[in-house]
Simulated assay, not measured.
Amino acid sequence: MRNASFITALILLLLTGVASTLMAYRPVPVVVATNLEKLPMEIDGYRAVEDTFPESVYKELNADKHIYRHYRSADGGVIDLYIGYYGTAKGGRTGHNPYACLPGAGLAIVDSDVVKLEQLETNKKVPVNYILAHTEDRNLIMIHWYQTAGNKVVSNGWQQNIERLRGRVLDNRNDGAFIRVSVSATDKDLSTQKEKAVQFSRTLLNTLPSYWPLEKATPH
């Protein structure tokens, strides 16, 4: 039994080494078309206005492409959208973590959960993250997730790492994006605002694959 376990571990170690070596000699994909800027300016009846962060924020996030918009409805409602895309050369993911960043910005997280969004391509419901944060004068509802390879949706970093590794081995790419949808709410309209954020997120999740960035492998 011990010999069998040792042989199995040895084989796995050798296969990992071979895979790592082959990956090291493969051409590194680079982003040749970001495409996310073509994301519709109107989603679910909300019309977008572009916005920007201070340059220091962009340097800290270090993404290949940022989308920061305020989507406004006819009745004055506002849904904020941020997308940070990281190509394979940048490791496919951000160090941004709402569970750390929100308290750092003075918002207390009072509730967190997982909500499921219908993915039309697979006809399945995929889990994404829900956060309710609070300051003295407002509530913030946030839906966020990671998306990789265009249509793969994951709710946390370790799942993203698995998908990135799989993509790197099978398709020679491990790009990904952090997506955040947020909306302000009063104590009285929390459930209504949450449903609006969830519906918007559902539409966005199914729209993103059509505007996913394009990468191309280049020789070392």
Rank of each mutant, 00 (worst) to 15 (best):
M1G: 10
N3A: 13
F6R: 10
F6I: 13
I11L: 11
L12A: 10
L22V: 14
Y25V: 15
V28T: 15
V31R: 09
V32E: 12
A33F: 12
A33S: 15
T52A: 13
V57C: 02
N62Y: 06
K65Y: 08
R69T: 09
G77I: 01
I83A: 02
I83L: 08
G84Y: 06
H96L: 15
H96N: 15
N97A: 12
C101P: 05
L102C: 10
G106C: 09
V114H: 04
E118P: 02
E121T: 13
N123A: 15
K125I: 07
N129K: 14
A133L: 01
T135D: 11
H144N: 14
W145K: 05
T148H: 06
T148Y: 02
N151C: 09
S155K: 09
W158P: 00
Q159R: 04
R164I: 12
G167Y: 07
V169N: 01
V169R: 06
N172S: 10
N174T: 00
A177P: 07
A177E: 08
R180D: 08
S182L: 01
T186K: 05
D189C: 07
L190G: 07
L190I: 14
K194N: 07
E195R: 13
K196G: 03
Q199P: 00
S201E: 02
R202K: 10
T203G: 03
P213H: 02
